[in-house]
């Protein structure tokens, strides 16, 4: 059982991993809950005791008020933003895995393209937002909202591609020798080994990829001003409505962490042979 023990000790969860006693798990949940409550109480107390202006420094209760008031607009705007982010995310995901498979199968092509992939991944891709909007608008002015879809793909694709590449290449020499020994074809390499060995990496890419797709969409909406959460948030600046700004952050944050948590759950179910971490490999 030594193998399993060392695995648990070297776990990737920031908290040092599961100590695997049910009792301590309960304590950790309780502490986490306590942390959230303390934060809210402290925030409310400061706002009330100092008598801060709720327009500039709203208390949690003021934020809930603002949330209630913006709720109808928010629910109108959300589908636009989520549609762009989710569709863009799925396109980027499928495209990245497919591209990674083709590139890993053709090592020459991979070596030739690697400087471009690394290069595009290290520059601030978000700076291209106005250009993307300009081009989409050039094709059809009435379909400017499509730029948000394109932005989601553009921002999320490269990190997910690199994650998938790392994953498919994550194969030790012994396994590689074994495959060579049995004369496995490229497709068999993927089917029996690479697709599985790559899973932890792909899932890490999927978690950050979803957040990136949301980022691309929101910035697209910031700049283009098409109806959605992003344009709602940027319009808050002119009105100096902090309460509303925080309400929007909360809603989008809960959706986003919900999706990330869902991906993490699927990951832990699927990859039973090693521990997963909600924030990916850091």
């Amino acid at each position: 059982m030594t193998a399993r023990d060392s695995r648990t000790l070297g776990s990737r969860v920031p908290g040092g991993g599961r100590i695997s006693i049910e009792n301590s798990r309960l304590t950790r949940w309780a502490l986490s809950g306590l942390g959230v409550i303390l934060l809210l109480v402290f925030w409310q107390a400061v706002a009330t005791l100092l008598g801060l202006d709720p327009q500039y420094f709203p208390s949690p209760i003021d934020v809930m008020d603002a949330l209630q008031r913006t709720w109808p607009t928010l629910t109108d705007a959300l589908p636009h933003t989520l549609a762009a982010a989710v569709v863009g995310y799925l396109i980027a995901l499928v495209l990245s895995i497919f591209t990674a498979m083709v590139l890993v199968a053709n090592e020459r092509l991979l070596n030739a393209l690697m400087p471009f992939i690394i290069g595009v991944n290290t520059v601030p891709r978000i700076a291209l937002t106005p250009l993307v909007i300009y081009w989409v608008g050039f094709i059809s002015l009435s379909a400017t909202f499509l730029a948000n879809y394109v932005m989601a793909v553009w921002v999320a694709f490269f990190p997910m591609l690199i994650a998938a590449l790392d994953g498919f290449k994550n194969i030790d020499e012994a396994t590689e020798n074994m495959l060579a020994m049995y004369g496995a074809t490229t497709w068999q390499e993927f089917k029996f080994v690479r697709l599985r060995k790559g899973l932890p990496f792909i899932f890490d890419g999927m978690k950050s990829g979803f957040i990136l797709a949301m980022i691309g969409t929101v910035v697209g909406e910031f700049v283009s001003g098409t109806f959605g959460i992003g344009s709602m948030a940027s319009s808050v600046i002119g009105q100096i409505a902090i309460g509303r700004a925080i309400a929007i952050v909360l809603v989008l944050g809960f959706i986003s962490s919900g999706v990330v948590f869902l991906i993490y759950q699927i990951e832990s179910q699927l990859i039973f042979w090693q521990e997963s971490s909600i924030m990916g490999e850091e």
Binding site: A174, T175, M178, F192, I271, W273
Partner: peptide
């Protein structure tokens, strides 16, 4: 006709 026993185990974890 040929079998190879590797230096380290190559059992796939899944």
């Amino acid at each position: 006709e040929v079998g190879l026993v590797f230096q380290h185990p190559v059992a796939l974890e899944w």
